[in-house]
């Protein structure tokens, strides 16, 4: 059995030889563990030592379950986050519009009070909030 690795860019190649029986076994393992042949060959080429620790079925199962649980949590939270962001965006838009209206109304109030000789109100707190929304 020959595995030919060809370069995507030129005509160079590397030929790997293995017994037919081992290749049948390799195909079964690729299918069982969900690996692609090209990716596995490269991983094998990067393995520094063949003396890697044996991983038990239990270790693989529990880690795989933990990964699935985390994937589900991420998926759920992403599902909650997007609609909330959408709703908040529209509330901020409302606040920006209200800020524009209020700026005009506060200016008018200041002008009317001055003309009428009335004491000016302290708008500093609300003006700060208005500036915040107009600068978002």
């Amino acid at each position: 059995m020959r595995i030919i690795a060809r370069s995507k860019r030129d005509r160079r190649k590397v030929v790997l030889k293995m017994p037919d029986e081992s290749f049948r076994r390799l195909k079964a393992l690729l299918s069982e563990y969900g690996f692609r042949l090209d990716a596995l060959l490269l991983d094998l080429a990067r393995v520094e030592s063949t003396d890697v620790p044996a991983v038990s079925d239990g270790e693989l199962k529990s880690l795989s379950e933990e990964v699935s649980r985390l994937e589900e949590e991420v998926y759920k939270l992403e599902g909650k986050w997007s609609p909330l962001r959408f709703k908040t965006y529209y509330i901020v838009q409302d606040n920006r519009n209200l800020s524009i209206q209020l700026s005009g109304m506060i200016a008018e109030n200041k002008r009317l009070r001055k003309t009428l000789g009335l004491e000016e109100k302290d708008w500093s707190e609300v003006e700060e909030l208005i500036r915040y929304y107009l600068n978002i």
Binding site: I3, I4, R6, S7, K8, L37, L41, L42
Partner: peptide, 8 residues
Amino acid sequence: TVEVSVRP
């Protein structure tokens, strides 16, 4: 024979 494509 099985062929795979890889980067240079």
